[in-house]
Computed example of a mutant assay.
Amino acid sequence: MLEAARPCPSSLTQAATELMVEIGYTAMTMRKLALRVGILPGSLYHHVDCKQDCAARHHRTPQAGLGKRRPT
């Protein structure tokens, strides 16, 4: 049976969105996300199970990443 995703603080979702826009999904690591929000990497797993959860939340967030461009 699948478990429902735990609620994610908006600050974590926002930081994940910013990182994905800035450096891309592949380059974003849980360690980089933890550093961005100021918590220990292991503490992230109290909010999300994996990096894919962050991406899913990013795509469900209204206007996620709109108006922002990645540097070329």
Rank of each mutant, 00 (worst) to 15 (best):
M1S: 05
M1P: 02
M1W: 08
L2P: 08
L2H: 10
L2M: 03
E3T: 13
A5Y: 05
R6K: 12
P7K: 01
C8Y: 00
S10F: 14
L12E: 06
L12G: 03
T13Q: 09
Q14S: 10
Q14I: 13
A15I: 01
A15K: 09
T17D: 10
T17P: 01
E18T: 15
E18F: 15
E18P: 02
E18I: 10
L19Q: 05
L19T: 02
M20H: 14
V21E: 08
V21L: 08
E22P: 04
E22Q: 15
E22A: 14
I23Y: 00
G24A: 11
T26H: 04
T26P: 00
A27H: 14
A27L: 13
A27S: 13
A27P: 06
A27F: 15
M28G: 06
T29S: 15
M30G: 10
M30A: 11
R31C: 05
R31Q: 14
R31F: 03
L33F: 15
L33W: 01
L33I: 08
L33S: 12
L35I: 12
R36E: 15
R36H: 03
R36W: 01
I39H: 05
I39V: 14
P41L: 00
P41H: 09
P41Y: 01
G42C: 05
G42T: 11
G42I: 02
S43Q: 10
L44Q: 06
L44G: 04
Y45R: 13
H46R: 10
H46W: 08
H47Q: 11
V48Q: 03
V48F: 01
D49P: 00
C50D: 14
C50S: 14
C50P: 01
Q52W: 01
Q52I: 11
D53H: 13
D53N: 04
D53L: 09
D53T: 08
D53Y: 02
C54H: 07
C54T: 08
A55F: 15
A55Y: 14
A55M: 09
R57P: 00
H58F: 09
H58K: 01
H59K: 06
H59V: 08
H59Q: 05
H59E: 07
T61M: 06
P62S: 03
P62Y: 00
Q63A: 05
A64T: 07
A64V: 04
L66P: 00
G67F: 12
G67M: 06
K68P: 00
K68N: 05
K68Q: 12
R69Y: 11
R70P: 00
R70F: 00
P71H: 11
T72V: 02
